[in-house]
Simulated scan of single mutants.
Amino acid sequence: MISNRPLLSRVAATTAAVVLVLGTTATPATAAVPDSARMVALGDSITRAAAADGTLDAQPQNSWSTGTASSVNSHLRRLEAAGVDMTGANHSRGGDRSVHLATQATNAVGTTSADYVTILIGGNDICYASTPSGTTAPDVFEANVRRALDIIEAGNPDTRVLLASVPSMMSLWRVGRDNLTIRLRWSLIGICPVMLANPTDTSAAANSRRAAVEARVDEYNRRLAKLAAERPNVFYDNGAVHNTPFTPADLSVLDGFHPSLSGQNKIAKVTWDEAVRQGLFDVG
Rank of each mutant, 00 (worst) to 15 (best):
M1L: 11
L7F: 01
T15D: 14
T30H: 07
A32D: 11
V33H: 09
D35K: 00
A37M: 05
I46M: 13
A49L: 10
G54Q: 06
N62C: 12
T66V: 09
N73S: 11
A81G: 12
G94I: 15
V99D: 14
A102W: 04
T103I: 10
A108E: 06
A108M: 01
S113E: 02
V117N: 01
Y128R: 15
Y128A: 15
A129D: 03
A137Y: 12
A143S: 15
V145L: 04
L149R: 04
E153G: 12
V161A: 00
A164W: 04
S165M: 11
M170G: 15
S171D: 13
S171C: 08
W173D: 07
R174C: 02
V175E: 06
L180A: 15
R183T: 14
L184W: 07
S187T: 08
I189A: 14
C192L: 07
P193V: 02
L196W: 04
A204H: 00
N207L: 15
R210F: 08
A212V: 06
N233C: 00
N238D: 15
N238E: 14
N238V: 05
T244W: 02
T244V: 08
D250I: 03
D255Y: 06
G256Y: 10
F257T: 07
P259K: 08
L261I: 11
V270A: 02
F281Y: 13
D282P: 03
